[in-house]
Amino acid sequence: MNRTLLHDAGLVLAKDLRLEWRSRVIVSQVVPFAVLVLVLFAFALDPDRRILTQATPGLFWLAVLFSTLLALQRAFGVEAADGVGDALRLSGLDPAGIFLGKAAGIAVHLLALQAVLLVGVTVFYGSTPAGPVLLVATCLAATAGLAAVGSLYGVLSAGMRVRDTLLPLLMLPVVAPVLIAATEAFAAAYDRASGEGWRWFGLLAVFALLYLAIGIFAFEPLLEES
């Protein structure tokens, strides 16, 4: 990667983190939403805590997935408002750098969200992981994949009036492999079956690398069309 690309990615990442620092949208809206989803699952399945414990991986990643949609709508809503899209196109920033910066910003927000949710499943579901290394690795790989796919579909839908409803329709089918693989890897991490879990981690890593590569090359035409 060239220096301009990394410089521009760093600039966009710093801007997105500053936007969150100023507005607190992720902290005050997305994180509470994710915790609420966990709590509602607990209410729905509470009669049998054993089911909650068994379902922890799937419920965790469903909560992450739903929250990712909210985070993406925020991340790309600000890029479409009041002429910012035109300003980005005229800025001289490398489109691939914008993609990497946006994906990195979303990833930072999602990782913070997952840290809160991990505490949540421990408290509400009584689940504690047996393989913390696999757990962390899974979070990193799955987050990279979600952020990469989300940035691609986020910019695609950014300029549309129906973006809030279109984004989930476009994105959820594509990230189904992330949901499956991350859930299986988490299940292994919670059940001390790490060997099987690392194979699912491998799938997540390949998915993330694939979509990061696609994003680097495809973001410019998508930004142009948004």
């Binding site: 801007k15 500053r18 936007l19 100023r22 408002a81 009041d82 002429g83 035109d86 300003a87």
Partner: peptide, 15 residues
């Protein structure tokens, strides 16, 4: 080029 259009091209939540 620099373009000053009808929109501000600014992030509302940033200073």
């Amino acid at each position: 080029v620099g373009l000053l259009g009808h929109a501000s091209g600014l992030y509302e939540d940033l200073t």
